[in-house]
Design a binder for these strands. Structure first.
Length: 572
DNA sequence: GCCGTTTTCGGCCCGACTGTTTTCAGTCG
């Protein structure tokens, strides 16, 4: 079983947790965390990099020692240091740190004083009120622990950003009604356009007498006020979403926005650069000798630190800072660059609206083309089309095109990739299409090897043009398939096959890292909505967000091109 | 454990809030 990047991240994170519980040198702990973060952000497989003789100590936060440890992990699946640590402190302790308000010091004291190793033991001790007797703990901490354990994961699950958006927009509208408000903006992972968000961070600046904090905690949808101060408050809404508000002076709003947008790794890296340039950078601004010298806008922050402005989607400390310093940032794709949707269903299969309606809606969006790509016969739950029915649909497309101006209707189909890797429709009909999207809809649980071979085999069919929702994941519902994505992408590059970036908020498939990996491996991608109703054509922006997080530019996306150019992308 | 146009040793981002304190450690972001 090959060791993947995820495994290395797990080992390093665990080492960091256990070292921290043991009260080791905090900078050593951080070194492991930063290394884990670096690996987590890589698009290539570390195992393969090592195989190719790459020197890992060139990676940020990874020196000679950790490069050696990575080699060991790749070879053996773990590392002796982790085993040694587990001899000293139980490995399960790191799980306790996930409870909010419980950090390494408290975990350590729980273990030392009461021999508590896991949530179950912790719950029992809390119920017997033994926690409050410990030094540093009290009744409130004890109650907090009990509540969190009982509430469990469900409520703490990260929310899909599209869902969080629906909850937060009315809240923002409400907050903006505070008359003395000067600025208000959402920051955090929401602004970085992550596919899911843990909480929502809002930043505000007000004129004298601004009552924004009271307005915030007084919102009718607030279920619980977690904390409240003059400059910072946190609430839980009835939906379970946590929202934080920070109030800062307008003069430092840019610095604050930068800081609260994160990611933390990005912010820390930027602050280090500030220190080197003899500034002190915090959420109130950039200071020299206790005097604020910049920070009104984010652009000013980046400018003073000698780099280009970095779009929020890139702020993950995955190389964007170096790129910004050397003028090598990508010119990220925008929603307006998209000229058409290449994945649209109709009521001929499981769509709700007719072909006419879908085409009309696409034209209204200003698209130059839209592809009708209904399911093939094997997807019976959707009423997939067989060759004859598809043939009839193609005729209907011709007839609709005759009476439709201003938009080209492309002939496509979402062809199921069968378990053995063959396509669900015969070549005879596929060659009549402008292009195909081929996707997996069944048998998600094959082994990594078999699943990869299955898709590779499909790619050998010369009528395959786009691989649809490659991982098959549904966020929170179905994990991604086991696949050697790197292998697939390399094969796709050789065969002029493109990958779909499916914009549906449940899918967002490819994920951001795979987007970037695709670019690096030389494939092109198509951002599509997979719309089943006209309204879903508007989901395109979520796919574009994902593409932006993957560093993609307009030229990496085939449906930013005019039809003439797009057409040539389907020649194999 | 990493890192270096002030350093191969001695630094390592920085501030707010809570709960526990009696002046602050721990936790969080």
């Amino acid at each position: 079983m090959p060791v993947n990047n995820r495994d290395i991240v797990r080992v390093f994170s665990k080492i960091a947790d256990l070292l921290e519980i043991k009260d080791a040198n905090p900078f050593r702990v951080r070194a492991y965390r930063e290394a884990a973060h670096t690996i987590n952000g890589l698009s290539e497989s570390v195992a393969r990099l090592i195989e190719e003789g790459e020197d890992l100590s060139g990676l940020p936060g990874i020196g000679k020692d950790l490069a050696g440890k990575i080699k060991t992990i790749v070879k053996t699946g773990s590392h002796p240091l982790l085993k040694d640590l587990k001899q000293e402190v139980p490995g399960e302790l790191s799980d306790l740190m996930k409870i909010k308000g419980i950090g390494p010091r408290k975990v350590s004291s729980l273990y030392e004083e009461l021999e508590i190793k896991n949530r179950r033991q912790l719950e029992k001790a809390a119920e017997k009120h033994r926690i409050r007797e410990l030094e540093g703990f009290g009744p409130k901490t004890e109650r907090n622990i009990l509540e969190q354990i009982k509430r469990r994961e469900k409520e703490h699950e990260r929310l899909k950003r599209a869902d969080a958006e629906k909850i937060i927009e009315p809240f923002i509208r409400y907050l903006r009604k505070e008359g003395k408000l000067e600025s208000l903006q959402i920051a955090g992972s929401f602004r970085r356009k992550k596919e899911t968000v843990g909480d929502v961070d809002i930043l505000a600046a007000g004129h004298r007498g601004c009552q924004i904090m009271d307005r915030f905690t007084g919102y009718e949808d607030v279920k619980e006020v977690l904390s409240s101060g003059d400059t910072r408050s946190s609430v839980i809404l009835k939906s379970g979403l946590q929202v934080d508000l920070r109030v800062v002076p307008q003069a430092g709003f840019g610095a604050a926005l930068h800081y609260f947008t994160g990611s933390q790794a990005h912010t820390v890296a930027i602050r280090k650069i500030a220190v080197k340039k003899n500034y002190k950078l915090n959420e109130y601004g950039g200071y020299r000798k206790n005097k604020r010298v910049f920070g009104r806008t984010e652009r000013e922050v980046y400018d003073k630190l000698g780099m280009n402005y970095i779009e929020p989607e890139l702020r993950e400390n995955r190389g964007e800072i170096d790129a910004a310093r050397t003028d090598n940032l990508p010119d990220l794709v925008k929603v307006d660059d998209i000229r058409g949707d290449l994945h649209v269903h109709t009521d001929a299969t499981d769509g709700r609206h007719s072909m006419e309606d879908m085409v009309k809606a696409a034209r209204k969006k200003g698209y130059k083309y839209v592809a009708i790509s209904d399911h093939s016969r094997n997807v019976t739950v959707a009423g997939g089309l067989g060759p004859k029915e598809l043939e009839e649909q193609l005729d209907r497309i011709d007839r609709l095109q005759e009476r439709t101006d201003g938009i080209r209707i492309l002939k496509s189909a979402e062809v199921d990739i069968l378990e053995d890797g063959t396509l669900d429709l015969p070549d005879g009909i596929l060659k009549k299409l402008d292009f195909t999207i081929c996707s997996v809809h069944y048998h998600f649980d094959l082994s990594r090897k078999k699943q990869t071979e299955r898709v590779l085999k499909a790619m050998d069919n010369r009528y395959m043009n786009i691989l649809g929702h490659a991982s098959g994941r549904l966020i929170h519902k179905r994990p991604p398939m086991e696949l050697d994505m790197e292998k697939l992408m390399k094969a796709a590059a050789d065969r002029r096959i493109h990958f779909e970036i499916n914009s549906h908020p449940d899918r967002l498939d490819l994920n951001d890292r795979h987007c970037r990996m695709g670019k690096e491996l030389g494939i092109k991608m198509a951002v599509t909505t997979d719309a089943h109703i006209t309204g879903s054509l508007d989901l395109m922006r979520f796919g574009v967000d994902q593409a932006r997080r993957g560093w993609l530019e307009a030229e990496d996306i085939i449906n930013t091109r005019p039809w003439k150019n797009l057409k040539s992308q389907f020649e194999r």
